[in-house]
């Protein structure tokens, strides 16, 4: 049986939404296809009548600034994100996360929008977006709406977006501004799994050597993207240094209870590296604010 029968390359969101309506639940949206096509091929997703490729929709492959926000179209590839000077400066964590996704050939086609729509709570881009308080734009026959990023995740691989009727058209988040920076790190297993053992993203505002505001995202510790709210609260108002970070470890470990994933990591290992990731990631973000040097850790061998 063919995995799909028709392949469409609509040029507008309206056309794409119209196609989805025409196929009445039997078509799915595809961007880079590096997740969906593998799922179809390996039988993890049922065959569909049509694939609606959104990567040629005019305007959807742009990264732009709009007021306080940075908007990333759903057709933007991971390579575009990594190479964007705007994002390198103002969303460093997302650039670092996008850089470690797949290999160069995959990053040249795989989109961040597609990765988010896939709703894997531990995906690297997801963790970065979570720390950046992102929102997503969803288009359907009834129009377009912005929803909080986290409301999109219903469970591992379960998205609030019905990709047979709706399209994730864009992502947006506030750019890091004066006295702010972000960072991302992860730990991989060298044996065969594509998902990280654990990843971590931090965004911080430092004023007068104090942590004024901090966002910490870590995965996987829950079936949906998780923010370390207690650790964030603990750190707020503390001096921006490693003593404060080390002091937050007990809180972090009390609110994050990582579990064992077969063939990936034990819960015990994750508990060991969780404080390491906090220290490395938040430490890196604070350092960036202090020095004003926000260049992401990319173009290096992992």
């Amino acid at each position: 049986m063919p995995l799909w029968n028709d392949y469409h390359l609509p040029l507008s969101v309206d056309e794409a939404v119209g196609l989805l309506a025409r196929y009445d639940g039997k078509a799915r949206v595809v961007a880079g296809g590096t997740d969906l096509i593998l799922d179809l091929r390996q039988g993890h997703a049922p065959p569909v009548e049509a694939l609606i490729d959104v990567t040629r929709i005019i305007g959807l492959n742009e990264i732009r600034e709009a007021a306080d926000f940075i908007v990333i179209g759903a057709g933007v590839t991971h390579s575009q994100i990594v190479e964007s000077q705007l994002l390198q400066q103002k969303a460093t964590a997302l650039v670092e996360a996008s850089y470690v996704v797949g290999g160069p050939q995959v990053r040249n086609v795989a989109t961040l929008g597609g990765n988010v729509a896939h709703a894997l709570p531990a995906a690297d881009g997801t963790t970065a977006l979570n720390a950046l308080d992102a929102e997503v734009e969803v288009a359907s026959f009834s129009g377009r709406r912005w929803i909080p990023f986290t409301s999109l995740f219903l469970g591992p691989g379960k998205s609030a977006i019905d990709s047979t009727r709706e399209i994730l058209t864009a992502l947006r988040f506030k750019a890091t501004g004066e006295n702010e920076a972000s960072a991302f790190s992860r730990i991989m297993r060298p044996q065969g799994v594509a998902l990280p053992i654990m990843n971590f993203a931090a965004k911080v505002r430092v004023l007068d050597q104090q942590i004024e505001k901090v966002a910490l995202a870590v995965a996987p510790v829950a079936p949906t993207p998780f923010r370390c709210q207690q650790t964030e609260a603990f750190l707020t108002g503390k001096p921006a240094n490693f003593e404060s970070i080390d002091g937050a470890v007990a809180v972090l470990l009390s609110e994050c209870k990582p579990r064992t994933s077969p063939h990936r990591a034990t819960g015990a290992y994750r508990q060991e590296v969780l404080p390491v990731l906090l220290r490395r990631t938040l430490g890196k973000a604070i350092e960036r604010v202090k020095t004003g040097e926000v260049m992401p850790e990319i173009y290096k061998v992992e």
Partner: peptide, 12 residues
């Protein structure tokens, strides 16, 4: 841009 052609839909 280099891409992996094995999962690249031809019509793309």
């Amino acid at each position: 841009q280099p891409v992996v052609s094995c999962i690249y839909p031809a019509l793309k």
